[in-house]
Write a protein that binds this DNA or RNA. Structure first.
Lengths: 335, 335
DNA sequence: GATAATGATCGAACCGGTTCGATAAAGTCG
DNA sequence: CGACTTTATCGAACCGGTTCGATCATTATC
């Protein structure tokens, strides 16, 4: 591999001039610039990114840290970020914490060791320790998906209250009163907001929420399945189930199928967030989806702004909250 | 951040001794080792991975390059590799080429620039240019999923011929004779092998394959949908459809649903490879799945063997081919 | 007890770039 | 034309480690 010294020797200039020629070509005379470029192509010189990062103290890599890269929600966001970063000569390092906070911390520290230029983080936790850790990160960063109280950083996400409220209102309009809610972990902002959307919409409509109809699905398939079963074995069954995310809702569908209930004839079902093959799931679930492409786009722009604009560091953190979209299916019937 | 020179100063030894103390503690006297360790913890010294990589000419990072990290097949493999790598103090950099060969090449060159210790690659292409490129990679590597003719590297994958043959045999046993096949891109080894499994099993059973029943689904959802439609509008429809992968099979299910056909009453359906929420798709598709955990495990072991064992470079490349597993559903009926 | 082998430590060069102050040449101005 | 900028280039220090040959004090061998 050719080094900068090889190029300097061939072009008959100093090493520092070669370095200058590549970083700010305008500050080198046209003649020497030409010589240097010719020499560089002759030996096939490409700057070593590692050496550059070491000398500069920062690389052109962006860290992307989420709990599950397999989740299509994160996939769409990742793709947007990758494309935008590529256009700006940055490179995205994808990492997966499997939702484990310790792992997430390791990953982030690793990435910082690599002197990443910026970080896109979907927080996996909450609480003072976690907030302290995130606040201690001095790299330009944008948080997304999960809004964490106390973290003073740019945030990009959806209006989860609205998401919960929209589906609740839809079920109410169809005549449902016995509506059950499979909730997520309440310490998560997305989960608590969705729940609040449900509760407040019910209250506005003057419909009381049966406490037996609110169960905890932890946003996971297994807990969601259990929670759904708890709903389905009650003597006075709900007429509709609202799943706080895709995993718990589909787990509920599975539970219904296994017990022999028909959806939507026996019980209606609605969920927040899409899944990949939703169009071949019978019935097609009525849902509210996030605008993942738009979210990804905002994350990318904001992060690269913070990275490239020297004045950006002084700009106060900002929240970007997008409205979700209603996607009708045939899993909710009028009663 | 504390550097190695800070530690050296405090421990009153030379910089090289500190370096030695961390890389091979046995070659330093117990007394000085203790002094150095104490000094290191006192100032919170952690070696800069970037500087280490630059000096050593290689890092402790492993590149993982696939066409779609969102695909659960790759997700399982990734997780296995990550866990195993972590146990051996290596760190996996995930990248996604979106199936584009140019992008893949860029990514690999980027990773090599980062002086990765090893590479796990799911090849996205074929042909002499591609083979030359892959063969030019001097980093320890393991290829998986797609076997590419001409690439002399370790390969880990499934027996795709068997996968195609198993499902074909199953349909034949159920009495089907008019079996259609939605194929993948024939230049891909997985696709051609699955097709071969279909054709040869049909031939062994003395059943002629109707050429109109073999359509090209490109392994994608959209092409699969189109291909399925072509099958469904024929006057003499097939009684069963075999999808060469999950995307084309589910696209076929969607097409059947849209045209009003019932599966399995009107047409049976079988597919190769699982999808995430297959258990809530009605009907549950009969399928053959790959042992992703085992594949991931072999990939991880093999790659880390090549990375850590100095003699490994001289070992000839080896193929590891696993048998797929039959998972019955209720999408195939006896006729 | 002289000589060879062993072990601990060190200095210096190196990995491949960046950056900044110094210097010399060229251009501007009154 | 001399004083003052500006522009182009360079040398040297630096980023934070690794590595190898040299040195010197011990210990083993005969």
């Amino acid at each position: 591999m050719a080094t900068i010294r090889d190029v300097a020797k061939i072009a008959e200039v100093s090493v520092s001039t070669v370095s200058l020629a590549f970083s700010s070509p305008g500050r080198v005379s046209p003649r020497t610039l030409e010589k240097i470029r010719a020499a560089a192509t002759a030996v096939g010189y490409v700057a070593d990114p590692l050496a550059q990062s070491l000398a500069r103290g920062r690389s052109r890599m962006i860290g992307f840290v989420v709990g599950n890269v397999g989740n299509p929600f994160f996939g769409d966001i990742r793709r947007e970020l990758e494309n935008y970063a590529l256009e700006h000569e940055h490179f995205v390092l994808i990492t997966d914490s499997s939702g484990k906070t310790d792992r997430e911390r390791d990953l982030i520290e690793h990435l910082i060791g690599l002197k990443i230029a910026g970080l896109a983080l979907a927080p996996s936790s909450f609480g003072p320790d976690y907030v302290n850790f995130v606040e201690s990160i001095k790299v330009p960063m944008v948080c997304f998906d999960q809004k964490v109280a106390g973290i003073e950083r740019d945030f990009v996400g959806s209006d989860n209250f609205l998401a919960g409220a929209m589906l609740t209102e839809h079920l109410l309009q169809l005549g449902h009163r016995r509506i059950a809610f499979i909730a997520g972990p309440q310490h998560m902002h997305t989960a608590s907001e969705r729940y609040r959307g449900f509760v407040e919409t019910m209250a506005s409509a003057g419909v009381e929420v049966n406490p037996n109809y609110v169960v905890d699905g932890q946003f996971t398939r297994s807990a969601g399945y259990e929670a759904a079963m708890r709903l389905l074995i009650q003597p006075e069954r709900p007429t509709a189930i609202l799943g706080a995310n895709n995993a718990v809702a589909l787990a509920a569908l599975q539970a219904m199928q296994e017990l022999g209930f028909s959806c939507p004839d026996d019980i209606s079902l609605a969920m927040i967030d899409n899944v990949q093959w939703s169009s071949v799931i019978t019935p097609r679930i009525t849902m509210v989806v996030q605008d993942t492409l738009q979210l990804g786009n905002i994350i990318a722009r904001r992060l690269l702004h913070r990275i490239t604009d020297p004045h950006a560091a002084s700009e106060p953190p900002q929240d970007f909250v997008l409205a979700p979209k209603f996607v009708p299916g045939n899993s909710c019937r009028r009663i």
